[in-house]
Design a protein around this nucleic acid. Structure first.
Lengths: 191, 191
DNA sequence: TATTTTTCTTAACCTATATCAATAGTATTT
DNA sequence: AAATACTATTGATATAGGTTAAGAAAAATA
């Protein structure tokens, strides 16, 4: 499944066969069964991972034990707790498989090597970061300016594949509402 | 006031005198009076700016004409609509001076030159982006998991200088609540 | 297939925050 | 100093979305 990983990178930067070898020699494949953890809150996030198969949720747990979903990652998405990965501090996020997964992972050492040996990767990395940042800015904005119903409509527009595959209560949490509220919103919209 | 700009960058990466010249030769200083715009929604964000004096708000305007504040930027902060700046598409954000400001600005061409002539700047840029991204992740999280009162308390803890300088209605908008609600929360906390 | 677990829906009720309107207090501008 | 903007406060009322609880439906597991 490393093919899909290399193809995805190739969409942004050109990779030679030699470049591809660098990735293959430095990345690992992790397999997770549904409900297993890629990362647990409090652990140090050793790996950044590219989801090559399956689906995961990234979330925090508040003082009442309630989950708040930050990200839902399908194939082609990256998962990590960036803060923890960069600083070596304990992670705030938990990352858990919603389905059986295959994840291409690299630790910091592997990334250093890739950055050194595949010069274009620096650019890929920056572009990915910029895209994620802009997307997160927009999410803040939608939370500031839109109702729950508007956010749900925007979500199904933007991520129809997620709506098909992921339990509603996970989507409700991502939107910042109770699952009962999402159920009501859907009923209302069905008319 | 370019001193402050150079000093701030020097806190992250070392700059030689020659490096500093590169910045001085490629950046401009923009001055804005209170209520003037650094960027207006719909325009293309030509510049990224470093606030060397004053204070600005970055916000969107919704279909009812209501403002939603994404960022409050004091001295040392950067302002831009990153999406517009990177893609050349029209900006979603408006950036407006809350006080008379001095802003060190660079356009894309200037940045290209700086990146080429000051090799460490790439690293500075990446670190800044990473920090902003992590901060924005945390903001999403606080909106998902905390009440208005909790968010306000976290805000005054994190940004006491902003509380001193910026009208409450701007802070209320940043927190995603009505100014009346913030007023009531403050009254409640005063007890 | 039967059983257990998880997810979704519905209804009744509740609460945090919004909205509207009036007033008072502060800054700016003339 | 007066006049004109803004900004903050307060009270009355409204509402989106939360909470609790129960049952139905769907999915996973035995």
């Amino acid at each position: 499944m490393i093919e899909f990983f290399l193809d995805t990178i190739s969409e942004i930067i050109e990779l030679t066969e030699a470049d591809k070898e660098v990735f293959i020699n430095n990345c690992l494949i992790k397999k997770l069964k549904k409900r297993q953890f890629f990362l647990q809150e409090g652990d140090i996030c050793k790996y950044a991972g590219f989801v090559s198969k399956g689906c995961l949720k990234t979330y925090t747990v508040d003082k009442n034990g309630d989950e708040h979903v930050f990200q839902i990652a399908l194939e082609g998405w990256w998962v990590s707790d960036m803060y923890s990965h960069l600083t070596g501090e304990p992670a705030n996020f938990t990352i858990e498989a919603l389905e059986d997964c295959e994840i291409v992972v690299m630790d910091k050492e592997a990334r250093e090597k890739i950055l050194k040996e595949v010069p274009g990767y620096e650019r890929f990395h920056r572009i990915l970061l910029e895209k994620n940042y802009v997307a997160t800015q927009r999410r803040v904005n939608s939370m500031l300016s839109s109702s729950a119903e508007e956010r749900y409509l925007a979500f199904i527009e933007k991520y129809p594949q997620i709506v098909q595959r992921v339990p509603q209560l996970v989507i409700a949490s991502y939107l910042g509402i109770a699952p009962e509220s999402l159920s009501r919103i859907r009923k209302q919209l069905a008319k």
